[in-house]
């Protein structure tokens, strides 16, 4: 066990966990932040995507010991009241079906737009192909990303 002071969504949160514990489970089990989802546990589906210093990472496969001073942003901290342009675009396009993967999709999309404010279709495909949606909402996701890019 080891103590960590993590910067999460602008606040410092203290946890005492095994150093191998993935960020995902620190968030979900120890900090009661279930917005970040468990999908595969091997960085293959993207449901667990969070930002580390603004970059999209798969929290299921990154141990808490690797976080250091980097700032974690989760879907709960992306904005107040769904105000982020990506969240607004998701609402406008009624993107979700079951909704389980969408937090991860939104975090990947937000990271993409931060580094590339006007992505092409190919850029979107490349940035988003690590996020699986079994319901098949990919086309709406692409449209929503384009809408968010405009705003």
């Amino acid at each position: 066990m080891a103590k960590y002071n993590l910067k999460i969504n602008g606040k410092t949160r203290a946890v005492d966990v095994d150093p191998s514990t993935p960020i995902l489970w620190v968030l979900r089990d120890h900090l009661n932040m279930p917005g970040t989802k468990f999908g595969c546990g091997m960085a293959m589906c993207g449901a667990c995507t969070v930002h580390l210093d603004g970059n999209a990472v798969r929290s299921c496969s990154m141990p808490v010991s690797a976080v250091g001073k980097m700032a974690i942003t989760t879907i709960e901290g992306l904005s107040e009241n769904a105000a982020h342009p990506v969240q607004k675009a998701w609402l406008e396009h009624d993107v979700a079906q079951c909704g389980y993967c969408q937090g991860g999709q939104i975090m990947s999309a937000a990271a993409l737009l931060k580094s590339n404010p006007n992505p092409t279709d190919e850029d979107i495909d490349a940035a988003m192909s690590g996020n699986i949606c079994r319901c098949g909402t990919y086309l709406r996701i692409k449209e929503a990303i384009k809408t968010a890019a405009k705003n």
Partner: peptide, 13 residues
């Protein structure tokens, strides 16, 4: 619109 959508996009349980 999906009545749960705002909760979905903000990561509510």
């Amino acid at each position: 619109r999906n009545v749960d959508l705002e909760k979905i996009v903000t990561g509510k349980p």
